[in-house]
Nucleic acid binder design. Structure first.
Length: 271
DNA sequence: AGAGGTACCTGGCAGC
DNA sequence: TGCTGCCAGGTACCTC
């Protein structure tokens, strides 16, 4: 489900309900996510006040004076703020109960998500320490893409989805950004010019910003902190559009598997 | 070192 | 209607 815009939408949605509130308790119905939720987290969070809800790539960071909860939504995860008394439905694995009678409820049918605890700087955590630049920060440039791609033969789409290269770009937005930049997804990363990488960096920024503005993309079940879907799906150019006319030239959009992921492109506009 | 494949898990859908 | 196989927004880890 969630790529950077969906995680950012979630962050913005939950922040006002969580920041400044004390955590009363943590209810865990299913401990076995991608990694088991630690007893340490369950013991450490109660009594703490959330001072900040941050994001790094697709990771959400709930910061307290005692440490930081690192949360990843995996493929199917969502978070919402609801009344703490609401009975839990299936796959609603964790409640972080707040002092205002509400709770942050984590649902994740496929359990590819994660909830970890660190007492150190989250940036030093092994999950985050290798991440590339934030795509909406000034550290993300066409030049850095160009420099890291020299000599690499893998498909540029797989390169763009590598979190060590840039954080938070998943399958939907990699497809969309490559379309906007006019680059064929299967082109070898090392055979794209500096100028075209500059266009690609701009396209990544543009598509992520536009999606955040629309509250993210809901394909099936993404909801924000208020339980509402995102509307960027209506603005997708190529993702999931096999056979539809290209918005630029009218040629049918093609689909191909690249790196085990469905990829969509216009055979005329992208090369 | 880089590239590619596998595994984790559940649910929805197409096709028979 | 019910079964089977395939697909899905991610990413760590394995092998070649």
């Amino acid at each position: 489900m969630p790529e950077l815009p969906e995680v950012e939408t979630t962050r913005r949605g939950i922040s006002p309900h969580v920041i400044g509130h004390r955590i009363e308790r943590v209810i865990i119905r299913q401990r076995n996510l991608r990694w088991p939720i630690s007893r340490r987290l369950q013991q450490s969070l109660p009594g703490q006040t959330v001072c900040c809800v941050g994001r790094r790539g697709k990771y959400l960071l709930l910061t307290t004076a005692a440490g930081t909860a690192i949360l990843h939504l995996g493929m199917s995860g969502s978070l919402r703020i609801i009344d703490a008394a609401t009975p839990a439905a299936t796959h609603e694995h964790v409640d972080i109960v707040l002092d205002n009678g509400r709770c942050l409820r984590f649902k994740d049918p496929r359990r590819f998500g994660a909830l970890l605890w660190t007492t150190r700087s989250p940036a030093a955590h092994w999950l985050l320490s290798e991440l590339g630049p934030e795509p909406l920060s000034t550290g993300f440039t066409g030049e850095c893409l160009y420099a890291q791609s020299r000599g690499r033969r893998l498909a540029i789409k797989s390169f763009l989805m590598d979190s060590k290269i840039v954080a938070g770009v998943g399958n939907i937005y990699a497809n969309e950004a490559l379309f906007l930049a006019g680059i064929h997804p299967q082109r070898a990363a090392g055979r794209v010019s500096r100028d075209r990488y500059e266009r690609l960096a701009q396209a990544v920024r543009a598509v992520l910003r536009a999606s955040i503005r629309e509250g993210g993309t809901t394909l099936r079940d993404f909801i924000n902190g208020e339980g509402k879907p995102g509307y960027f799906r209506q603005l997708l150019n190529v993702y999931g559009k096999t056979g539809d006319p290209c918005p630029h030239c009218g040629q049918p959009i093609r689909e191909r598997r690249i790196g085990q992921r469905s990829s969509f492109f216009c055979p005329t506009c992208q090369h």
